[in-house]
Structure formats: C-alpha cells, structure tokens
C-alpha cells in the first residue's frame, strides 16, 4: 500500500502553533512567512482613512514595559488600537521594581484582571518565559534582556522583503554590538531560517561565543561584511556599555566600524541601510548614510505597526476566549 499517496497535502498554514510569541526561536519558516503575509494585509488597513478594524474588539491588551521604550511601545499601542483592542500601558521604572513587587506578583495581579494578551518588555532575558508559565494571557515578547526582540526581526524581514521581493539568497551584513543585542539574536534566527546569507561584524570584544554555530559568517572587518551586500543592518552601540571597556573610544569605533558612505559603496548599488533605532549619529552610522536615499530606517518604523498588528491578530486567533460556554 502506498502510504505516501494517501497522505493528504498539508493545508496552508493559517495559525501559529504557539500561544505566545516568546522568540523567533519558536517559529518555523512557514509561520514567519504567515506573519509577513498577514502584515501585508494589515499594512493596507494603515493606508485607509479610517485605520481601524474590529478584529480584537472586546479584548484587553496590556503593554507592560519595565524598560524605557518609545518606538516599540508606541508601535504596539497603535497596532492594538487599529485592531480595536482595549489597550493600556503599564510603565514601570526599573528603580521601583527593585524596591517593590516581584515580576511574578505583578503578572499575577494583572492576570487576575483577565487580559487577553500581555506585551512585555523587560531587562531580564527569559522574563517572557517566566510570565508564560504563570499567565493564561498570551505573552508577546517586546524585548527581553539580551535574548530576543522577535517583532523587531519580523518588521526588519518585512521591510527587506518589501524592498527586495525575497530574503532567500540575499547577503545581509549586520554590524554593531552583537554581544548585548537582542535584535541581533532574533534577526540571525529569522534570516537564516528564511535562507539569507547573514554576515555579522563587530570588534572581537563584542562577538558572543558560539556565533559561528548560529549559521552566520563572522568577521571583524567591516569592509568584508558589507562587500556586495544587499542589506546593511546597523546595531546600536549602547553608550551605557562603554564602561565595560569593550573598545577604547567612540571615535575609534566610528573610524573602525562606523557605516560611512565610503563603506556603503562596497555594497551592491541598490543596497538598503537599516537600523532598529534609536540611532547614534557619528557613532555607528554617519548622518549622510542614515538620512541617505538607501536608508529604510523610517520604513522599518512604519512597517512595525503592520507587523505587530499581524502578530496580535494571529495570536488572538489561536486563543479560544470566545468559545468559552
């Protein structure tokens, strides 16, 4: 008997397999594509005069931010509002956390008010995993420590696909503080899953151990990283890291690793320049590059809303709130 002949073709994916979005590590390539495709439709909503659909009506989404954030928090909030969710922001200065309630207690108290989703930004890697074990609400990782920032990687992929029509086979150079960057981890996971050729570049002091095992090419020569690249993605040099002595001075960093027009010329003529923000002009990127015609930095911000709408929409589809008798 031909078993294979009897196996029906897999239906096209219409939902995510996991209840939470804790990281790109948990997503298959197929799920990533589903999110990106869904974001296309969401982007169309953003072009309407009335930028609102009733998808999440009656659902409560809490944006729980333990770290300062302008872009990500605003982006999530706009996404939630465009989906008609009841949304509220809980911003907790890290100093008051030290004095007061534990993360677990905060989460249990919020959970008691039955939100559908909690969007969490936290300085500790794994904070979202901890919440996912104690909350019924779907947890959306908006950046946890040095671990992952999955919606950033998704919006980056969306932006690249929009400009280049594909991800597979593109040479993508990621330059900056690899060691401390959650954006780096999520992007490497995502881009390698979708078949891009990823190069990462940093001073040797800012390359995490085991980088090679993540399926990327590692170099400390920025010229080599950007040579023939389709995409140059800059990572922020976190000024607060300077005390760690990872490099001698911001000036030397810029002269050695900063993205200048001269360096960009080594990339493909139609290469695009990306940055998750906030940018440090004259540190990791020259203003002429950041503001130049190849820069898609503000497209990334715009696409963030559509991608986050897609994530919230798909995660809500996976819950069964409405079917409870």
């Amino acid at each position: 008997m031909d078993v294979a002949a009897q196996t029906p073709a897999a239906p096209p994916l219409t939902a995510l397999r996991h209840k939470h979005l804790l990281g790109i590590a948990d997503l298959s390539a197929e799920e990533i594509v589903l999110i990106l495709d869904t974001a296309e439709a969401m982007k169309e909503v953003g072009r309407r005069t009335i930028k609102k659909v009733p998808t999440l009506r009656g659902r409560t989404v809490i944006n729980l931010f333990f770290e300062p954030s302008t872009r990500t928090r605003t982006s999530f909030e706009i996404a939630e509002k465009r989906l008609s969710a009841d949304t509220l922001n809980v911003a907790i200065a890290s100093s008051s956390v030290v004095k007061g309630e534990t993360l677990v207690d905060t989460a249990m108290n919020l959970e008691a008010m039955s939100p559908s989703m909690i969007v969490l930004r936290h300085a500790s890697s794994g904070a979202c995993h901890l919440l996912s074990r104690i909350c019924k609400a779907a947890i959306v990782n908006a950046g946890d420590g040095m671990h992952e920032h999955p919606t950033q990687a998704l919006l980056d992929a969306f932006t690249i696909r929009e400009r280049k029509g594909r991800l597979k086979g593109l040479k993508i150079a990621i330059v900056g503080d690899l060691l401390h960057s959650r954006v780096l981890r999520s992007n490497v996971l995502l881009l390698t899953k979708l078949g891009a050729e990823v190069w990462v570049c940093a001073p040797a002091t800012l390359i995490p151990p085991g980088m090679q095992q993540m399926g990327v090419r590692v170099t400390t020569k920025v010229e080599e990283a950007v040579e023939g690249a389709d995409v140059i993605m800059m990572l922020r040099i976190q000024l607060e890291r300077m005390q760690g002595g990872y490099f001698p001075s911001l000036r030397e960093y810029f002269t050695t690793f900063g993205m200048t027009e001269a360096r960009v010329k080594r990339a493909k003529p139609d290469a695009i320049i990306m940055h998750p923000g906030p940018i440090n002009r004259g540190v990791e990127i020259a203003s002429e590059v950041a503001d130049g015609s190849a820069s898609v930095i503000l497209d990334q911000v715009a696409n963030g809303v559509a991608v986050r709408m897609a994530v919230l929409y798909l995660l809500a589809g996976g819950t069964d709130d409405e079917t409870v008798a």
């Binding site: 794994g126 981890r185 151990p209």
Partner: peptide
Amino acid sequence: HEGPVAASLGLRG
C-alpha cells in the same frame, strides 16, 4: 557559563 547556550539565551557569561 560563557558559551553558545548562554549566548543564545542572552545570558551574561
């Protein structure tokens, strides 16, 4: 421990 696991979990090594 500083190694690939801590790096992928975003934990300081």
